[in-house]
Nucleic acid binder design. Structure first.
Lengths: 183, 183
DNA sequence: ACCTGAACACCGTTCAAGT
DNA sequence: ACCTGAACACCGTTCAAGT
C-alpha cells in the first residue's frame, strides 16, 4: 500500500505556494518533494521533468488571467484591460520569470488575445495594425515587468525634491501612458 | 612559481566565448575554469562570485552599445538608434538574459540614454514626456527581445499563404513600427 | 604569498531495490 | 504494480593543504 498519495493538482498547489513565498529559483524538485513529504524521485511519477512542472504551473496560473470588461467602450476596455494585466503579473513576479526564463507559453492566453484584438478592431484598425499593436502592447508589458523586477527601485538616496519633474514616475504610470500612445 | 596566470580581461574574454557559443546557462564557473585550463577554485582569486562575473561581462559588453548617429535629424536618429539597439541585442541573446535574469545594470548605458533623451528634447517633448518615452522604448525593446527569444518562431507548419495579411510580421518590423508610434 | 585539490552543500534525474 | 532510497553527474563556493 502506497504511503503517500498525491496527484498533479496537489503538486501544482504546492509549487505555487513555493513560488509565491520564495520565487522561481526556490521551486526545486527537492523543495517540492519536501513540501509533499516525500522524496524527489516520487515527484517524477507525476511530472516528466522540471520543465514540464513549470509549464503546468504556468498553464494553471494563466486560467486566472483577467479578461477586459466588455461593458466598456473599446478604448477604455483596452486601457483598463492592459492595466489589469500589469497588476496581475506584478502580483506574480515568478510568472514573468517563467515566461522569460522558462520557455512556457500557455494556450489559455488565446481568449485574452482575441478580446484585445476585437477591441482594436472596433477602433477601426486594419488586421495588420491590430496584430502589430497587440504584439507591441505585449512586449511593452513584458519589458516593463522585466526592468521593474530588480528589487532595487533605482532610487537615489542623496536625492530629494530638488528636481521634481525629472524624477522617474512609477513603472505602472509610465506603462499606462505608453499604452495610451499605442492604442 | 605560479603555473597558470590569468587576469580579469582573460576571464572576460573566455566568458564571452562561452556565452556566444552556448548561452548564459553554459557559463558556469567550472566551464570557465576549464577554458582557462585551471580548477574552479582559481577563478575565485579574480572574481568574488558568479554574480560579479556576470556583472563584469555585462559591463564589458555595454561598452559596445551603439550610439545614435548625430548627423541625423532627431526623429530619424531615434528610429535608427533604437533599431541599432535591437540588432545589437539580437546578436547577443545572452546579454538579454543577463539583464532580465541576472540583476546586472551597467552605467556604461548612461551616454546612450543621454543621447536619446537629447533627441527627444529636440523633438519638443517636455522633461516628463522625454523620460516616459525613453523608458517605454526601453521596455518595448526588452519585451520584444524576451518574447522573441524562444527558438520556436511560433510558425505553424500547416499554414500556407491562405491568410496573407493576418500572418505575424517579423518581431523586428513590429518593433520598428511601435518605435515610430512612441516617438 | 599565491594558488588549488578536495570537500561541502546543493541541484535534476535515474534506476535498482523495496513494498 | 507502484513507490522511493541511494546513487550519478552536475552546480557554486570554501578552505586547508600544497608550492
Amino acid at each position: 500500500m502506497p504511503r503517500h498519495l498525491f496527484d498533479r493538482p496537489q503538486i501544482i498547489t504546492a509549487a505555487r505556494r513555493i513560488l509565491d513565498a520564495d520565487g522561481l529559483d526556490a521551486l526545486t524538485i527537492r523543495a517540492l518533494a519536501s513540501d509533499l513529504e516525500t522524496g524527489p524521485a516520487s515527484v517524477y511519477r507525476h511530472v516528466a521533468d522540471r520543465q514540464q512542472l513549470l509549464q503546468l504551473v504556468a498553464d494553471d496560473a494563466a486560467r486566472e488571467l483577467p479578461l477586459p470588461d466588455p461593458a466598456l467602450a473599446p478604448r477604455e476596455r483596452l486601457h483598463s484591460g492592459w492595466l489589469m494585466l500589469y497588476d496581475f503579473f506584478a502580483g506574480r513576479p515568478w510568472l514573468v520569470d517563467l515566461i522569460t526564463a522558462g520557455n512556457v507559453v500557455s494556450d489559455h492566453a488565446s481568449p485574452l488575445a482575441d478580446a484585445h484584438l476585437q477591441a482594436l478592431a472596433e477602433l477601426g484598425l486594419d488586421q495588420a495594425d491590430r496584430y502589430r499593436t497587440y504584439r507591441s502592447l505585449n512586449a511593452l508589458l513584458l519589458g516593463t515587468l522585466c526592468s521593474t523586477h530588480p528589487y532595487a527601485h533605482g532610487a537615489v538616496e542623496a536625492e530629494d525634491s530638488a528636481d521634481p519633474t525629472a524624477h522617474e514616475s512609477a513603472p505602472r504610470e509610465v506603462f499606462a501612458w505608453a499604452v495610451d500612445r499605442l492604442i
